[in-house]
Design a protein around this nucleic acid. Structure first.
Lengths: 149, 149
DNA sequence: TTTCGTGCAAAACCTTTGCAAAGTG
DNA sequence: CACTTTGCAAAGGTTTTGCACGAAA
């Protein structure tokens, strides 16, 4: 890892830990390990993959399952639902909103920095992908639920 | 059900059955039931919900699980992945591409007829939804996979 | 010291598979 | 009659839960 990357890695981790502290969440070894792994590589990673990255240090799969929602709640990681039950997590570098290109064959994930459907599809095709499709869902609180609060 | 709706329901079902026949798939009672249920109500429905609609006629949950991929392959239904492992199916009325608004509280699903992120979000807010977010992923065959075919 | 978080094991859950019987063409 | 499709039961894989111990504040 180049020196600058290592420095920024450390800065991100320090900041993430400060966020945990501010939320009165405990700074534990598993949480440090998981955050470190996600900062080191963009991923996004599945539960299994995260576990593979931290189990050598003794962090259990169950702990990964329990930690990710906590870290997401704290705004430190972002959850990506890729359909077919595939869930992955990536470190949340600020509010930078982006999408992913997932190869339907090898499942490789790449990042895309735009956010409008057509422009996105065009960009993805320019990257050499074929048979491009997209899937998108919107979420919100419906009027009924706002009333019955 | 109004007379016109019933007539169009029958037309859709007849067409769907013709598609099955054209594909040399057998016209069975469970398949008729499932298609009928999806044509009668846009849904989209989960496996459980579809099963609830057809089990009184003796159609098993396993049969629903086995039928949906077949019907999807035939282009008769569309699969919607709503994240968190939630999968739903809706009847495929032609090639009409659309998205959904899912209430994060009650899970109610509504249909949206546009297909660009920003326009969509605006429209959803106009419908009275608050805290609107969207989730979108792209899929394609990556250059590597095209080569290693 | 008090509370929170973890590991391990077991339970729960949803989806898939095996197989004999029934249904379709 | 040949081949699909189905129902039931059982297996499989992933995610969640219970609980006692250990760690953080």
């Amino acid at each position: 890892m180049p020196r600058s990357a290592r420095a920024s890695h450390k800065r991100e981790l320090t900041h993430a830990i400060a966020v945990l502290r501010a939320r009165q969440l405990r700074i534990t070894e598993p949480r440090r390990l998981i955050l470190g792994a996600l900062i080191a590589d963009h991923g996004p990673f599945s539960m299994e993959e995260i576990h593979r990255l931290v189990k050598k240090s003794g962090c259990d799969l169950v702990t990964v399952y329990r930690s990710m929602p906590v870290l997401e709640e704290a705004g430190l990681v972002r959850r990506c639902d890729f359909g077919k039950g595939v869930v992955r997590y990536e470190f949340n570098h600020g509010d930078h909103h982006h999408h992913h290109i997932i190869c339907r064959k090898c499942q490789k994930v790449e990042t895309v920095d735009l956010c409008v459907a057509d422009a996105l599809e065009r960009l993805v095709k320019q990257r050499g992908y074929t048979e491009v499709t997209h899937q998108m869902e919107l979420f919100g609180i419906c009027p009924d639920c706002q009333r019955n609060r």
